[in-house]
């Protein structure tokens, strides 16, 4: 009788202790996932930064679209400047962008007309809200983080980290077909159909109106999925992410890649791969360029929903 008690008691004590320690290790986990999260937070807290980004979309290894962008962003004075180039199947398109407190200015590569859009009111409202809701949004962020952690679940073990001798870190994540959660996999074709269906409808528009709207200009060029619309067997083949984090816990470089496989209406299989490569530099030392519009061809662009404000000013 006594032996039995000793056995069960011992088993409970030992397994309880092991469970506690392994649970604590899992919670404390100095894993790549936690490292990446903290680096992301540190990078988001930056006041100004220069960004160089490249994106390439490939179909069975052939380059379909190629985008290259350079951006200088400064948050405290709400300024941004940059240049974006998109090379599509048909043509090349480039846009210079300047954005400040007063509004946005942009110019497409082919013409010398500067489009100007004035910003009113909205931004100031946003500023006031920022200060009052700061505390609340911090709480929200924390809650959102917990939710994301729970959603990620055991996948967080997939993020691996490699410390370098100079104190920087290489963080990487690689997910293959079987490892991608079924829910995400099920949503992939829907997202894909949505993307290609949406842009089919835009084909009729002429390019003159597109010039005044940079979003559309790029949307048309970058995501022209009409020729490669996959209709069957759509699935995410792999997802990978690689980030270089410097000594100050800022993300210096981030490469991401996602590839889809599927068949088009003719039954031909395609592998679509989107690669992005982002370099960040000049942390907190970036000064965005400004533009002097004196003596240049300028065209004002009005926001559709902003019309009623015009008479007041």
């Amino acid at each position: 009788m006594k032996k039995k008690w000793l056995m069960t008691g011992g088993a409970i004590a030992v397994s309880g202790a092991v469970m506690l320690t392994t649970g604590l290790t899992a919670m404390a986990g100095t894993s790549g996932y936690e490292d990446y999260k903290s680096a992301l937070k540190a990078t988001q807290a930056l006041k100004s930064v220069s960004i160089q980004a490249d994106a390439v979309l490939q179909d069975n290894g052939n380059v379909l679209n190629n985008a290259h962008g350079q951006l200088k962003v400064s948050l405290p004075d709400r300024k941004m400047s940059g240049n974006v180039q998109v090379t599509g199947k048909g043509a090349q398109q480039s846009v210079d962008l300047f954005s400040g407190t007063t509004g946005e200015v942009w110019k497409t590569g082919g013409s010398d007309t500067y489009f100007v859009k004035q910003d009113k009111q909205e931004k100031q409202d946003g500023e006031q809200q920022d200060s009052t809701e700061n505390g609340q949004s911090a709480l929200m962020n924390k809650q959102a983080e917990t939710v994301i952690d729970a959603l990620v679940g055991n996948l967080k073990n997939y993020v691996s980290v490699n410390g370098q001798t100079d104190g920087s870190k290489q963080i990487s994540l690689q997910l293959d077909n079987a490892q991608i959660p079924a829910v995400v996999q099920a949503l992939a074709p829907l997202a894909f159909k949505h993307l290609s269906g949406e842009h089919d409808g835009q084909q009729g528009q002429n390019s003159a109106t597109d010039q005044a709207n940079p979003d559309k200009l790029f949307g048309k060029n970058l995501f022209n999925l009409k020729d490669i619309a996959l209709t069957q067997d759509i699935q995410i083949q792999s997802v990978s992410l690689q980030a270089t984090v410097n000594v100050h816990n800022q993300i210096e470089r981030q490469q991401a890649s996602i590839s889809f496989t599927g068949k088009d209406a003719g039954g031909v299989s395609h592998t679509l791969t989107l690669n992005t490569d982002v370099h960040l530099s000049a942390f907190d030392q970036t000064i965005p360029d400004t533009i002097d519009l004196a003596g240049k061809k300028v065209q004002q662009v009005q926001e559709h929903q902003g019309h009623h404000n015009d008479s007041n000013d």
Partner: peptide, 25 residues
């Protein structure tokens, strides 16, 4: 899921296995 990847460290495989087994016991 942890067992499907090649990038998961042996340490976290071991601790999670220990956790499951000790929880069972």
């Amino acid at each position: 899921l942890v067992w499907l990847s090649h990038s998961v460290s042996a340490g976290s495989l071991l601790t999670s296995t220990l956790f499951v087994i000790s929880g069972m016991i």
